[in-house]
Amino acid sequence: MSSTLPSSSVLRFKLPLPLWGLMGGLGLWWLFTTPLWHTDPIVADFSPERTIAALVQLFSHGVIFPHITTSLRRVFVGLFAALVIGVPLGVLLGLSRPLEQATSALFQFIRMISPLSWMPLAVMALGIGDLPVYFLLTVAAIWPFILNTSAGVVAVNPRWLLLSRSLCATRWETISQVIIPAIVPHLLTGMRLAIGIIWIVLVPAEMLGVSAGLGYYILDTRDRLAYSELMAVILIIGLIGYGLDSVLRFAYQRWTHQG
């Protein structure tokens, strides 16, 4: 077995493989931007050295915190709204074959429209401020919930439904106590996809008519020509996104191991 693994020599460096990729990325970034040999001051502003310095400053002055909390609040409001609308809808679609067939074309159609296309409409209908952002995020995140929930409901073990019937459970008891717990892994997958999409849509959505949030702050740094800060914000966005995804991946593993 072990003789078939020539790559095992790599493991001797005691660095986990994902870290190697990260180091490689960092190396490339540094190579293309470092002030050591890039004389263009704008390019040098994007370098890891200056970005790290800007990052430290952003945190030590605390300027970034209100933007992070604002963005996270929007993420959770959007996610929650998508969950509250998407999951019941998904359950309904999973339970009713005719309903699923009636709506599938419509949903596939709407799903393929980038949520950002709704931006002008959202601003016209909901005005300027948090509301259109919430709307866009909800629209973006609702599909993974609907699709994963309905797929989960369809895949529920028919034996459990038979059991539920043999115990004279009402329809609602079957849904709440058999179907919903049974689709938790599907829900967590949906949630993970939803957060991924929300986090991507958030930044452009915040570039319109709001005065706080990470997306807003990116435009702000650009306007101030503070490029190292811009890079720092990009880094923060990546870090938070990665963190959110990791938490959900962990939750998924915990649940499926136990179940």
Partner: peptide
């Protein structure tokens, strides 16, 4: 087949049948 709900413990599986509205 026993048809136990895998996310519930033995006691909870038994309770499931007892707590339904028709009981």
């Amino acid at each position: 087949d026993p048809c136990l709900l895998p996310w519930l413990t033995v006691a909870q599986n038994i309770a499931f049948g007892l707590k339904l509205k028709h009981m």
